[in-house]
């Protein structure tokens, strides 16, 4: 029971991060109808920007001991702004010229952008030579911005369930951002414009909606959510891998699977899918871990987590290709 609840806590925290990333995938897909492969790299960039900013700030203000409370939000905003700008640049330079091109070309461009971000991310930038700062080929460790405290401890007999401060902050920030997005998309004029462009680009343009600007804003919003997710992820798992590492790619892929499972193009579906995928991933591991290890006398359970997620993807694609909350798309000639 205690194990189960502990894993549930982790699943909810990670699920909210998946949901944040999935929102970016789904928003871009809703408007431009292509998979933005570079989105997971923007997420990685968010994590690394968070690392750079916090290391820089800690050394420049010579903070020793536990960092002050304003540092975390400041770093979060920095990461979001940097990634927003990067997202804007990517959209303007790489995707906008291809607006009328076949989808395959846009897909290849997205892969090109993704490869570019991964490989540029491995260069050594001379940001602060004395600190040997980031974006190297070497893994780094995120400085601790929060005390590693338990907010709530429940005991079940001999076992304890610990809900950490980090988990709570991740879930609260993620849900705040999701609510903000919900308000933006469904309660503002800009959101109405986004939905109009997503519904029918040409008609939206006829109605006087500045399509290019709306698309740019959508991109920037998605990139900022990914950056926030990246930063929050690095608070929970402080070991930062190099930008092209498989761990990052798998995270991005799972978030994409979440968007597809929820119904790609649907904002609420992405949130649902994010939590669902994380639950399946962690619960699958929880249920199967011991059984599998007994059968095969190896410790294979942790790596098999990824397999469950893709199995779910294939099942959903077979049974309900539009995802749980998606609406069927009619092909027009």
């Amino acid at each position: 029971m205690a194990d189960f609840l502990q894993i549930l806590v982790t699943a909810v925290a990670v699920g909210s991060l998946y949901a944040l990333i999935a929102l970016g995938y789904t928003m871009v897909y809703g408007i431009l109808k292509f998979i933005n492969f570079a989105h997971s790299d923007v997420f990685v960039l968010g994590a690394w920007t968070g690392f750079t900013a916090s290391t820089l700030l800690i050394s420049r203000f010579s903070i020793s001991g536990p960092p002050p409370l304003w540092l975390g939000p400041l770093v979060l905003v920095t990461a979001m702004v940097v990634c927003g700008l990067v997202g804007f640049t990517i959209e303007r330079l790489a995707y906008k010229p291809l607006r009328k091109a076949p989808r395959l070309n846009v897909l290849i461009t997205a892969i090109g952008v993704s490869l570019l971000l991964q490989n540029v991310g491995q260069l050594q930038f001379p940001i602060a030579p004395d600190l040997a700062l980031p974006f190297g080929a070497s893994p780094k460790r995120m400085p601790e911005l929060l005390p590693d405290a338990a907010l709530l401890t429940m005991s079940f007999g001999d076992n304890q369930v610990v809900i950490g401060l980090v988990d709570v902050i991740i879930v609260v920030s993620a849900i705040t951002l999701m609510l903000a997005l919900e308000v933006l998309v469904y309660r503002t004029r800009l959101g109405a414009a986004m939905r109009a462009v997503s519904f029918n680009t040409d008609n939206a343009a006829l109605m006087g909606i500045p399509v290019d600007r709306v698309i740019s804003i959508t991109f920037v919003t998605g990139a900022m959510l990914a950056a926030a997710a990246g930063f929050l992820y690095s608070m929970k798992y402080p070991g930062l891998n190099q930008p092209a590492h498989e761990v990052w790619v798998l995270l991005g892929l799972k978030a994409f699977v979440a968007a597809v499972v929820g119904g790609i193009g649907n904002v609420r579906g992405a949130v649902l899918g994010g939590f669902l995928i994380a639950l399946i991933e962690f619960m699958g591991q929880f249920v199967w871990a011991r059984t599998l290890d007994q059968w095969f006398s190896t410790s294979m359970a942790p790596t098999l987590r990824d397999v469950y997620v893709f199995a779910v993807l294939i099942i959903v694609l077979l049974v309900k290709p539009t995802g749980l909350l998606g609406t069927p798309i009619r092909e027009k000639v």
Partner: peptide
């Protein structure tokens, strides 16, 4: 049977599954 983008994602997932299975 689905639209082209899904093949991209499913094949990417396939490659990663093969990698994971080989690792164990």
């Amino acid at each position: 049977r689905l639209r082209g983008d899904y093949l991209a994602i499913v094949t990417l997932g396939f490659g990663e599954i093969v990698r994971v299975l080989l690792q164990i």
